Deep mutational scan, measured.
Amino acid sequence: MALNTPQITPTKKITVRAIGEELPRGDYQRCPQCDMLFSLPEINSHQSAYCPRCQAKIRDGRDWSLTRLAAMAFTMLLLMPFAWGEPLLHIWLLGIRIDANVMQGIWQMTKQGDAITGSMVFFCVIGAPLILVTSIAYLWFGNRLGMNLRPVLLMLERLKEWVMLDIYLVGIGVASIKVQDYAHIQAGVGLFSFVALVILTTVTLSHLNVEELWERFYPQRPATRRDEKLRVCLGCHFTGYPDQRGRCPRCHIPLRLRRRHSLQKCWAALLASIVLLLPANLLPISIIYLNGGRQEDTILSGIMSLASSNIAVAGIVFIASILVPFTKVIVMFTLLLSIHFKCQQGLRTRILLLRMVTWIGRWSMLDLFVISLTMSLINRDQILAFTMGPAAFYFGAAVILTILAVEWLDSRLLWDAHESGNARFDD
């Protein structure tokens, strides 16, 4: 018995066209964080690309023209004298008006014999932002004059995390709450300039795509075929072959399989920071003279006294001054041990922890910024005066060393310790 099946006739004509040209192939790229070699397709503007294995951002879609970056830099340069030299806060102490600005706080630190601690604050609040705007201006002028731009481009990517104007702005709020127990506070004209400078700096850093600047100024022929001998440069993120001198053909720094002496430098910085954190938390970090009496505060006791007036601000200072430094030390110690013992479990967790400490590390400088600003506000000789204690130097040095330890660690070593050939990683 035959089955009668109805015929289905399409209502619209289906047209099949042959592909007349070869589909576009992607360029081969190595991930600078996990060293995976993959094919990167062509990316349009405002599109980002991520590593298929570790999800690290390979290409950032946010990109401004150099002219727009230069305009932002010149605007920031105009704001800087007002943000640093004009009063941020006014207080009335014992019937006398006192003005506080950024430069005055750094000068008070240096004047009291601790120039190293003052230079830490100076670099993060004044030096690094000033280098940022002058570097962008150098790129703008240098591109037109045919100057060598490689050193500036190499420095810009590392400079971003040292620009800490946003953290200093939080420190202004913390210092205001600490001082309000002794005097009446009012915002100064410099505060508005400083807030504007923070906003412009944040926007500029978020749109400063150094890798795209490398592509514009020093374009290189990408690798179009897969080759395990391809290496990625950690300076400019170019994937290719080393030249005859073993250097990256684009930025001219040595092109090595792994960062040289990464573990040794990381261990040295980490152990030194552990040693410095002990006096930083045991010795007094601030000293207040009130009517001839002397009151010393460690980091913890200062947080407890701050909690009596504002528990939320005390929580912020606790996280930045105690929780973050010790968390960074514990995480980095764990990561280094996992590399030495070739741990194969929990790779995803370790990668996330490394990215976390990379982002939060700079916030530990908050305590030094609060001390710097408070020193310029309260300084009335023996009637009422505020000065920093010996722990300030140890704390600042420990924070900087932990930042350097994270920067010096080559994250690809975590993958080397893991089993080879993993296309995915999980716990």
Rank of each mutant, 00 (worst) to 15 (best):
R424K: 13
Y289H: 04
K12Q: 05
I319H: 08
Q112L: 07
Q104L: 05
S273Y: 02
L278N: 10
V203L: 14
G188Y: 07
A175N: 15
P10S: 06
I322R: 01
L154N: 02
C31R: 00
P390K: 07
D381G: 11
N291Y: 15
I91W: 01
I253C: 06
R412C: 01
L159K: 01
V121S: 05
P325V: 03
V163H: 10
F333Q: 12
S273V: 14
Y394R: 03
I136G: 03
L366M: 08
E212R: 15
G389M: 01
D99H: 09
Q108L: 15
F123W: 08
V210T: 14
R294G: 04
G302C: 02
T134L: 15
A100W: 00
P129Y: 04
S411M: 06
M103S: 04
A272F: 04
L278K: 05
Q112K: 06
L336T: 11
F318Q: 09
Y28L: 10
D410M: 00
P129F: 04
L277Y: 01
A128V: 09
M388S: 08
R150T: 06
M356K: 07
L404H: 10
D166F: 15
D181T: 02
I14R: 10
C236E: 00
T327D: 01
W162Q: 02
R412P: 01
D416P: 10
T202S: 15
E296K: 14
I311R: 07
I360G: 10
T358Y: 13
G95K: 09
V170P: 10
G315H: 14
R53S: 07
C251K: 00
K229D: 12
K13A: 06
R231P: 07
N291P: 11
G61L: 13
L414T: 12
P32A: 08
L306D: 00
S273E: 05
L66C: 06
G396K: 00
R221C: 14
L300R: 02
I253N: 06
G292Q: 09
D114Y: 09
C236W: 00
T117F: 02
L208Y: 11
M36V: 06
I316Q: 00
R256L: 13
Q186D: 05
R245L: 12
W84Q: 08
G421Q: 04
S48V: 11
T334G: 12
M72H: 02
L255D: 14
S305P: 02
V195Q: 05
T387A: 06
I172N: 05
W408G: 06
R30S: 05
M147Q: 05
A392I: 03
N281Q: 12
P325A: 07
L197C: 03
A280C: 12
N101D: 11
H252V: 06
A423K: 15
L368R: 00
A18R: 06
Q344R: 12
H237S: 12
D243Y: 12
Q33C: 09
T334C: 13
D243A: 15
G105I: 01
A397G: 11
R226T: 12
R53W: 06
S45K: 10
L197H: 05
F74P: 06
T15A: 09
C34F: 00
T334F: 12
P219D: 12
I43D: 09
L197T: 10
G26N: 04
Q186Y: 04
L366P: 02
I8M: 08
T334V: 13
A392P: 05
V329A: 12
H261I: 03
R59H: 08
L347N: 12
T298M: 12
D410F: 00
H252N: 05
C31D: 01
W140F: 14
A56N: 07
A392L: 03
F341P: 12
K229Y: 08
I330F: 15
F74T: 09
F425M: 10
L373M: 08
W92P: 01
F82Q: 03
G127I: 02
N148F: 04
G315L: 13
E215Q: 14
S119F: 05
A70R: 07
G146K: 09
G113P: 08
V329K: 08
M164S: 04
T374S: 11
L323V: 11
L352Q: 11
L323S: 10
F333A: 10
W363N: 04
T75C: 13
R150F: 04
T224H: 13
W92Q: 02
M80R: 00
R158F: 12
I403L: 14
T402I: 03
Q47R: 06
V232C: 15
I330L: 12
D227T: 15
V170Y: 13
V102C: 05
Y168P: 04
L263T: 10
R294E: 02
R150D: 04
T75I: 08
G20T: 06
L353I: 15
T239Q: 09
I19S: 09
M388I: 05
A18H: 08
H418K: 15
V195F: 11
Y182V: 14
V331N: 07
S206E: 09
F393T: 14
L213Q: 11
M72N: 06
V125H: 13
D63F: 15
G142V: 06
T5G: 08
I131Y: 01
R259L: 12
F318K: 05
A71Y: 05
L40H: 06
